[in-house]
Each structure stands twice: as structure tokens, then as C-alpha cells.
């Protein structure tokens, strides 16, 4: 049996510290283990520099410029940051905004809250699927095939699938016809679409696959021999899950949650189509200011969104201390 605790694993961020004696030894033999790091990271680093870092810097620069009718004026102003946080009438008892946060912060908050809800739902719905693929399906070929089947809806353009929501969930949609034919309801229900319920369901449906993948990968690497051994020692299925499977799948869970978290925080299209535009997310706010060419304010919103995403990702990586779990 393989001893997992002892095996050498690199952490998610960098490898584990290498003992000084090993380093010395490596130096002595003049043989570096593995390909040189520099060559491995250079192409991607260069790519990211050109297509991510430089544009990102220009976004940051924009956020300090002034938006005038007809273009940006180079400047060094904090007015858009102030506009983001400051709420007119915050201290005025008479004002409707008395002691309420600015709409942008509130939108970020509600986006965050909603994201958290959907993440939990995705985990609940997706984990058993990953478990099924990794533990119940024996052959690699069927694992891949069944996993790919879950990916297929993604290969139809999102914009096309979005159009199909209405005939599916609308008042005269397929689901309502089904409910009426089965005598579950006697007249069409309207809460399926353009409602928080429909919106939540849609998001789970669209993004759950993103967490199935990584969890599936972590689970499939668990050696069946350990599970067998645990069973032989009389562990109940619940114990096995709590003590072995659960902890060993945590990295996959963390990575899946990062995927879903980041995508949902920036989500804007589903809100329009499935919620009928009846909510705003930080993504729609950015889009609305982009659409009126107020790029500095769109940039401020984007930077605040990125900041909160970064915090979220760090928190996820903290909760699941990946280096230790592995």
C-alpha cells in the first residue's frame, strides 16, 4: 500500500521546502532535477505579461483618469473611487440613503452572497457526480465518456442556450405543459422563469460541471487499496468518507469552488436572460458604465471586483490548506 502522508507532493503554490542537505547534494552532483524552471515558466510569463499585465496596468491607469464626453482625459483623480464608496445623503436623516451603503458596494455584496449560495448548491449537486465517476465507474474509458457527456452542453454557444430558456421554463414552456399534463398544477406557474428561483437553478445548471471536473480528478487518484483496507478494519462508509475520501478530495473541491466563485462573481449574462434583467450584479454594472463610455468608473468597479475575488480565492485556499492536505 502506498503511504500517502509520506509521498512527496508539491503544494499548490510552490513546492514544499527542500531540505538543505538535499540542495547541497543536488549542487554537488551538478544535476538539477526536472526541466529548468526558467524555461518552463518563460513562455507563459511572457504571454501573461503582454496580454494580461500590460492591459491590467492600463485599466488601473484609466481608473485615475477623467471621463469627459468624447473620451478620456489623463488625470490623477480619486473621484471615481470616491463615487464608488460615497453615498449621497448617508448622514442625512431625511434622505432615502440615510445610513445605507452605496449601491455599488451593495451590489457587490449581493453578488457575493448569491455566489456563495450557488457555490454551496453546486457542491451538493456536483460532488456525488464526481464521486460516481471516480468511485463507481471502473473503466477509464467510461469515466471520460460520462464526464464528457456533462461537458457537451457547453459546446453549444451560451447565447443560443440562453434563448432556449424561455420556451423551456416560460408560462407556455415545456416544463409547464408537463406539470399541467401530470396534474401537478392546474394553471401555468410563472415562478420558473424571471425569478430568483429560476435564476439560481440556471446558475447551478450551467456551472456545476466546473466543480465536477476537479473533484473527479482528486477522487480518482485515491488508491482503492486504502479504502479496502479501511473497510477491512471495520470502518463504516461514513467514517471512510469523513476520514479518507473527504479530506483527500478537498483540493479538488477547493479548485472547483475557485472556478465557480470567480465565474459567478463576474457573471452578467444569465441575470439578463433568466432573471429577465431584474437584478444587477457587479458584472452588469461594469457593462452599463462601459456602454456609456465611462471607462474610469467601469475600471474602478472592475478593480473592486477583482479585489474581492482575490480575497475570496485567498480565503478558499486558507480554508483548505492545500499544502497540508496533500
Amino acid at each position: 500500500m502506498q503511504d500517502f502522508a509520506q509521498a512527496q507532493h508539491s503544494g499548490l503554490i510552490g513546492g514544499q521546502p527542500v531540505g538543505p542537505s538535499q540542495v547541497a547534494e543536488a549542487r554537488k552532483t551538478r544535476r538539477e532535477v526536472g526541466f529548468p524552471v526558467g524555461w518552463l515558466v518563460a513562455p507563459a510569463t511572457l504571454w501573461l505579461l503582454v496580454f494580461l499585465v500590460l492591459p491590467l496596468i492600463s485599466i488601473i491607469v484609466f481608473s485615475f483618469w477623467t471621463s469627459a464626453k468624447g473620451g478620456l482625459v489623463p488625470d490623477l483623480t480619486l473621484q471615481y473611487y470616491a463615487g464608488y464608496f460615497y453615498n449621497e445623503g448617508f448622514f442625512d436623516q431625511e434622505h432615502r440613503n440615510f445610513l445605507t451603503l452605496s449601491v455599488f458596494i451593495r451590489t457587490l455584496g449581493s453578488t457575493f452572497y448569491f455566489t456563495a449560495v450557488v457555490m454551496v448548491l453546486c457542491l451538493i449537486v456536483g460532488y456525488p457526480i464526481a464521486y460516481f465517476l471516480a468511485m463507481q465507474v471502473q473503466s477509464f474509458k467510461w469515466q471520460m465518456a460520462l464526464f464528457l457527456v456533462c461537458m457537451v452542453p457547453f459546446w453549444t454557444s451560451y447565447l443560443i442556450r440562453a434563448v432556449a430558456w424561455l420556451p423551456m421554463l416560460g408560462r407556455r414552456g415545456l416544463l409547464n405543459s408537463l406539470l399541467i399534463n401530470l396534474d401537478i398544477v392546474d394553471k401555468p406557474v410563472s415562478f420558473l422563469l424571471y425569478s430568483e428561483f429560476g435564476y439560481t437553478m440556471a446558475l447551478v445548471q450551467i456551472y456545476v460541471v466546473l466543480c465536477v471536473g476537479p473533484i473527479f480528478f482528486s477522487l480518482s487518484k485515491i488508491d482503492p487499496a486504502i479504502l479496502e483496507a479501511a473497510r477491512d478494519m471495520g470502518a463504516t462508509p461514513f467514517q471512510i468518507f469523513r476520514e479518507i475520501i473527504g479530506p483527500l478530495s478537498l483540493p479538488g473541491v477547493a479548485i472547483g469552488m475557485i472556478f465557480i466563485f470567480v465565474i459567478l462573481m463576474g457573471e452578467f449574462a444569465t441575470a439578463v436572460v433568466v432573471y429577465g434583467g431584474k437584478t444587477s450584479t457587479t458584472g452588469t454594472v461594469i457593462l452599463n458604465y462601459y456602454a456609456i463610455a465611462n471607462y474610469p468608473f467601469a475600471a474602478v468597479n472592475a478593480l473592486m471586483l477583482m479585489l474581492s475575488m482575490m480575497i475570496g480565492v485567498v480565503v478558499i485556499l486558507r480554508i483548505v490548506d492545500i499544502r497540508k492536505e496533500l
Binding site: S10, G14, L52, G266, I286, L287, Y290, A302, M306, M309
Partner: peptide, 27 residues
């Protein structure tokens, strides 16, 4: 590369992750 510890790995990790976070329209 990340199997080993190397100088700037933390920065590189979060730069890669930033690609997930920059709102597409502004990028």
C-alpha cells in the same frame, strides 16, 4: 515548474489567477 519552489512563484501564481478575475470587457 510549480513542483519546485522558485523565486517569484507566489507572484506568478496570483498573476495566472488574475486572468480569471479581470472582467473580460475591460481586459
Amino acid at each position: 515548474a510549480f513542483r519546485k519552489k522558485f523565486y517569484g512563484s507566489g507572484l506568478l501564481f496570483y498573476t495566472v489567477m488574475a486572468g480569471l478575475m479581470v472582467p473580460g470587457i475591460l481586459l
